[in-house]
């Protein structure tokens, strides 16, 4: 099979998977609906007000949230792994999780009742941590190693802050656990507008950079000598990755893992086509999070299991399969 044909099949396969995931996420939930109730609720049929409410107040926001967060985490991971040339890179190396977590806990300690400000605190905390890390890295010439080391060191500092605050105010810690576990419960459509705009702008930026990002696999010297302004592209990519992941963290809390494994899966499936990889990773990320969230809310309904459990359960076997297959080929 030619590479072109293979890539065509992979792309439309991923698109079909995403559509199926969206349908299942809308169709099924902790409350089981008959087909009639489902379609009646969706199209505002008279007498189906309860089902309309379930559809538009619960399932649609959750589905949109999962799609947006899946896109955000996986494209952030793809960008980070590419520009740091580090297969273990994920949004957490930019301090996204630690920065957001610290800011949320600080907000809970200082303003225990300001729940509505927590998404904003998470977004600002995540971005502030990233800019701090980028500031350190920039003073050392934006080297890949410095970015990773600065990320690890400053994340540790924020973690220390989280530990300190949790001792100072144990009550705030109880509310913080909900954020740190992550999930899509309670997501409202109106809360998604601003994150959606940020995530989609970053998605477009990543697509515009795809040709230049493809050359990063040759190392800084060759990429620069082939016309890529390495430092600038790295900085823009890191900001795009940070902004989209921070936007997602603001409404999902800390969902790990998607940004680490999905980029690997996309890369293994498209074999080096950077533009396609940057399309495929968001589609796969969204599908993974949709299916994981569906299992999280239906498997032991009405009890909800943390979505991170299922992103790992669904993603790891697929991921390990790809890694082992690749090793076998080499």
């Amino acid at each position: 099979m030619t590479t072109k044909k293979r890539n065509f099949i992979v792309f439309f396969g991923a698109a079909a998977l995403l559509l199926a995931a969206v349908f299942f996420s809308l169709r099924f939930g902790s409350v089981s609906l008959t087909p009639d109730e489902f379609w009646g609720g969706m199209f505002f049929k008279e007498g189906y007000k309860t089902y309309t409410s379930i559809f538009y107040s619960s399932r649609l926001p959750r589905t949109l949230g999962a799609v947006l967060a899946g896109i955000a985490f996986s494209q952030a991971g793809t960008l980070l792994q590419r520009v740091t040339d580090n297969p273990l890179a994920s949004p957490s190396i930019l301090g996204i999780n630690a920065g957001a977590g610290f800011a949320v806990l600080l907000m809970l300690v200082c303003f225990p009742l300001a729940y509505s400000l927590l998404p904003l605190a998470a977004f600002v905390g995540a971005l502030a941590a990233t800019f701090l890390i980028l500031g350190v890295a920039r003073s050392a010439g934006m080297s890949r190693v410095v970015i990773v080391l600065a990320g690890v060191a400053l994340s540790a500092l924020f973690q220390a802050g989280i530990s300190f605050l949790s001792v100072v105010d144990p009550d705030a810690l109880a509310s913080y656990v909900d954020f740190s576990v992550g999930g899509l419960h309670g997501v409202k459509t109106e809360d998604l507008l601003l994150p959606a705009i940020i995530i989609l702008i970053c998605l477009a930026a990543a697509q515009l950079l795809s040709r230049r990002l493809a050359l990063f696999c040759l190392g800084d010297t060759l990429a620069q000598s082939l016309g890529v302004s390495v430092k600038r592209v790295r900085l823009v990519s890191l900001i795009a990755a940070a902004a989209s992941a921070a936007a997602a963290v603001s409404f999902t809390g800390l969902i790990g893992f998607v940004g680490l494994i999905v980029p690997h899966c996309a890369r293994a499936l498209v074999k080096g086509n950077m533009r396609l990889e940057l399309c495929l990773a968001p589609m796969l990320g969204a599908s993974l999070l949709l299916f994981a969230d569906l299992l999280a809310r239906t498997l032991f309904a009405p009890t909800e299991i943390p979505v991170g459990v299922f992103t790992a359960l669904l993603g790891v076997p697929f991921f390990l399969g790809l890694v082992l297959r690749r090793k076998h080929h080499v």
């Binding site: 190392g219 010297t221 060759l222 620069q224 000598s225 082939l226 016309g227 890529v228 302004s229 390495v230």
Partner: peptide
């Protein structure tokens, strides 16, 4: 960088 790359090639 792109304009320079049209004029200079390097094998590191």
């Amino acid at each position: 960088a792109r304009e320079r790359a049209k004029r200079i090639g390097i094998l590191p």
